[in-house]
């Protein structure tokens, strides 16, 4: 009889919004106030990425030593079981090393999924409240992704620098300065950068499922979650 002609007539065109600057602010705040929880997530990344960087830098160092044609150092290397690559080729990690590396990264992702699921469960009510205040699913998703990226970046930076430094110091100790001379700085920087990207990537992969779960939650369910 009336009203139903245009049910949305009274709705203005305005939409809800969450600017990126604000999202980052909220994400940083959330990491800070849950420092310990973030630390655990970051820690698994630090370990995995430092292992990755360690293996990478070691390969670079060994390649450097082969190119140096320093007899004693090369002999030492074959003693340690490293296979001398064909002339002119760079040394790459052994299949075994690569296998362990893949495993460690996998374990790291599983660890992140685990801690992030816990984090989401912990934050049911917060997520529900935000939704009641007008947050869209993608705001929630975005907050979690930004948090994960920040954690990934911090963890991977610490991890890759630590792994690289440990590898460099270790071989400096084993082979002496010859290990340092032939190593290309560019390659080292490249390896660190790759490691950082890898870390962010792993962190995002790890948070994806928990974040989707959080974003899809109905406000009512979310509120009920912790009661």
């Amino acid at each position: 009889m009336q009203k139903n002609t245009n049910p949305k007539a009274n709705l203005p065109q305005q939409q809800v919004a969450l600017p990126y600057k604000k999202s980052i602010e909220i994400a940083v705040k959330s990491i800070k106030s849950r420092f310990f929880r973030s630390l655990i997530t970051t820690m698994s990344l630090i370990l995995a990425i430092s292992f990755y960087s360690y293996i990478k830098t070691n390969s670079l160092i060994i390649t450097g030593i082969f190119f140096s044609e320093n007899k004693t150092a090369i002999q030492q290397l074959s003693h340690l079981g490293y296979e001398i690559p064909d002339n002119g080729e760079a040394y790459t990690a052994t299949p075994k090393e690569r296998w362990i590396l893949v495993l460690s990264l996998l374990v790291c992702v599983v660890g992140i999924v685990n801690t992030q699921l816990m984090a989401v469960a912990d934050r049911f009510r917060e997520i529900g409240t935000m939704k009641c205040l007008g947050a869209l699913d993608r705001f929630i998703l975005r907050l979690f992704l930004i948090e994960a990226t920040l954690q990934g970046f911090i963890g991977a930076t610490i991890g890759s620098v630590a792994g690289t430094v440990i590898a460099l110091l270790g071989s400096l100790f084993k082979f002496g300065t010859v290990a340092m001379i032939f190593i290309s700085i560019n390659d080292v920087i490249m390896s660190i950068t790759t490691a950082i990207f890898l870390g962010c990537f792993l962190s995002i992969i790890g948070v994806l499922y928990p974040a989707l779960l959080a974003a899809k939650m109905q406000p009512v369910e979310a509120m009920r979650g912790k009661d």
Binding site: Q15, L133, G134
Partner: peptide
């Protein structure tokens, strides 16, 4: 006079944001 079951996710979020203020038993302060 807006039938809220007709609203999509955006409009519903807008409604919760602008039209309605919620107060809960458990406060739900972030």
């Amino acid at each position: 006079e807006i039938d809220i079951s007709q609203l999509d996710a955006y409009e519903l979020a807008w409604l919760r944001c602008r039209k309605i203020g919620y107060i809960f038993q458990t406060f739900n302060i972030i």
